[in-house]
Computed example of a mutant assay.
Amino acid sequence: MTERAGDLERAVEATLFAAEQPLTALEISAHLGGAAVDDTLVSLTQAYAERGINLVERGGRWHFQTAADLAHLLRREKEEPRRLSRAATEALAIVAYHEPVSRAEIEAIRGVQTAKGTLDVLLEAGWIRIAGRREVPGRPTIYATTPEFLTHFGLASRRDLPGIEELRAAGLLDPVEEAFAVLTGGEDGDTGLIDPSGGEDAD
């Protein structure tokens, strides 16, 4: 396999460039005959930090992405997509902060019933996943966020979500309200999140 650090960097670059989806360090290593790639990934991250594309880690998976300050150059004029309803945004925020969580638990935190379509939209978007069943009577399905959720919101891990102390310092005891600002950057009624189904939540 590769002998020089430069050779390994080039091999890691090529592997990530050709990959159809983000890869873990173990998957990259497997492509390269078991080579140790952790230090190389750190080195490449630093090397690409000021370039037009960056190497980033999201949820333990690595991929190249357009530098954030250049994203506007790649946008194309198109019809404004429909947005996620407030109910869907609330549900997504609750899953992010409390996962794994059941539909009943989401409803308890929101204080209102959650339409089945709300969770279906988030599942279809790939931002939440079914994470098993709660070992209680009825064995309800529980939900958790996905690596795609982290990638979409630019989070390396859920640890990057604001902590409870930060929320209290901001005067927000309920993390769901702060999550609207963190996850969407929008105001009430305009979440800024695209609804992949093209429809609104019928909550």
Rank of each mutant, 00 (worst) to 15 (best):
A179V: 08
N54E: 12
L122Y: 01
T145N: 08
S102R: 05
D120K: 15
A18Q: 13
D38M: 12
Q113W: 11
H31I: 12
R58Q: 01
I142Y: 04
E50K: 03
T151F: 10
L55D: 07
F180D: 00
D174I: 01
T66S: 12
L23N: 12
R51S: 15
F153K: 08
D69Q: 05
P137N: 11
R82L: 13
S85F: 13
G6Y: 04
E3H: 02
V101E: 14
L84E: 07
A202T: 08
L155E: 12
A14Y: 09
I128L: 14
V42H: 06
E57Y: 00
P147C: 07
D190K: 12
G117H: 03
E178M: 09
Q113H: 08
A93E: 04
H31W: 13
G192Y: 04
F17W: 12
I28S: 06
L70E: 09
L26D: 04
G189N: 14
H31K: 14
H72A: 10
G163P: 11
V176I: 06
L84N: 07
E135T: 00
T184S: 09
R4F: 06
G126W: 02
A67P: 04
G138R: 07
P137Y: 05
D38W: 11
R134Q: 10
D203L: 02
V121W: 00
R51T: 15
R110S: 03
A30M: 10
R86K: 06
V95I: 08
H72E: 06
E187S: 15
I53M: 03
L26R: 14
L161D: 03
P196M: 11
E124W: 08
D188T: 08
E124V: 00
A47V: 14
K116G: 01
P196Y: 03
E135I: 00
A96S: 12
Y143S: 03
R58P: 00
A47D: 07
G111D: 15
Q46R: 09
E178V: 06
P22V: 07
T141P: 10
R110L: 05
P81D: 13
A19Y: 08
I28A: 07
E80L: 09
E187M: 12
L167T: 07
G52F: 12
P137M: 07
L23K: 01
A93F: 07
P196T: 02
G192F: 02
T151D: 10
E90H: 14
E77S: 14
L55K: 05
A47Y: 15
M1V: 00
H63S: 11
P162W: 07
A156P: 09
G171F: 14
Q46F: 05
A170F: 10
H98G: 11
T45E: 00
F64N: 03
A25I: 02
P100F: 15
G189R: 13
